[in-house]
Design a protein around this nucleic acid. Structure first.
Length: 273
DNA sequence: CGCTTTTGACCTGCGC
DNA sequence: GCGCAGGTCAAAAGCG
């Protein structure tokens, strides 16, 4: 299992219908009473793919590794970006960090085509709630009065939702990240103007790299398609109105297929290794 | 000894 | 109401 900076305790395992691989349930054990849970399941169509779904918000400070990622990102997928940070392995030059911003303000996805553990993280449930977007980073246990929040606990913060997959000690890394609007909001509110411009240039530069990296790896492309299909397709097998080019767009208006299950899960991610 | 994992039982929501 | 599926609980076993 891919570490993400937190400690997890397995509390259950079940066989999911339509998937020969069992689904494992984990709880965050970094703090007593931490409500964060995650589900890990291998993709039925490609068992090299791990599908990890995070739910809830941490009620404790994140570990340094996680915080480093959280400080620059706004979704689970961005945990993956640790590979690009100096505090990680410092191999930014050897990475092909990529970010692709898709026109879906409520979705976030990250694809890591790292070898030997390519990882894909999709956040199909990220709420576009502007109140959320205004929240500063690094804060926890702040009551969130909006009863319409999808998450299971009152305290809501973007950062606790961001646990995707942290790929420590890996030499190659790439990310595919959606939710342009959210990115802009975060960058605009939390980063200095200069940094913001630099970041956006980086985003633009890496879009091409992401596309090339993914396209150059047919196996990964197939794996990704299988992973997304297993989640999106199973939930709404007939919902192909978006031509299938951007599964995350199906999650617009916070009605993403991944959220159709009680509409409370956050940050499903796919990991192939 | 303490923590984690395993696993069957139990609970709950949903569709018929 | 019933059955099914997903999620959780908790006792037992395993491990360092």
């Amino acid at each position: 299992m891919i570490t993400d900076g937190c400690q997890w305790r397995k509390y259950g395992q079940k066989m999911a219908k339509g998937n020969p691989c069992p689904r494992a349930y984990y709880r965050c054990t970094m703090a007593a009473g931490c409500p964060v849970r995650k589900q890990v399941q291998r993709c039925a169509e490609d068992r090299t793919i791990l599908i990890t779904t995070y739910e809830g918000n941490h009620n404790h400070p994140l570990p340094p590794a996680a915080m480093a990622m959280a400080s620059t990102t706004s979704s689970a997928a961005r945990m993956l970006l640790s590979g690009s940070m100096p505090s990680a392995d410092g191999l930014m030059d050897s990475n092909f960090l990529t970010r692709t911003i898709l026109p879906c303000s409520s979705s976030v996805a990250t694809i890591s085509a790292s070898a030997p553990f390519p990882t894909v993280t999709l956040d199909l449930t990220q709420s576009p709630n502007p109140l959320q977007l205004q929240r500063p980073p690094g804060q926890f246990n702040i009551p969130f009065p909006n009863p319409s929040q999808n998450f299971t606990n009152g305290p809501v913060s973007l950062l606790p939702q961001i646990f995707g997959q942290a790929l420590y000690n890996q030499s190659k890394f790439s990310g595919l990240q959606m939710s342009q609007d959210m990115e802009r909001v975060q960058l605009g509110h939390q980063q200095q103007p200069g940094h913001q411009g630099q970041q956006q240039n980086s985003l633009a530069d890496t879009v091409t790299a992401a596309t090339a990296a993914i396209a150059a790896d047919p196996n990964f492309t197939a794996a990704l398609a299988a992973a997304i299909t297993s989640i999106i397709g199973n939930a709404h097998p007939n919902n192909n109105s978006n031509n299938g080019t951007n599964p995350a767009t199906n999650s617009n208006n916070n009605n993403g297929n991944a959220t159709s299950n009680s509409n409370k899960l956050s940050n499903p991610s796919f990991s192939a290794n």
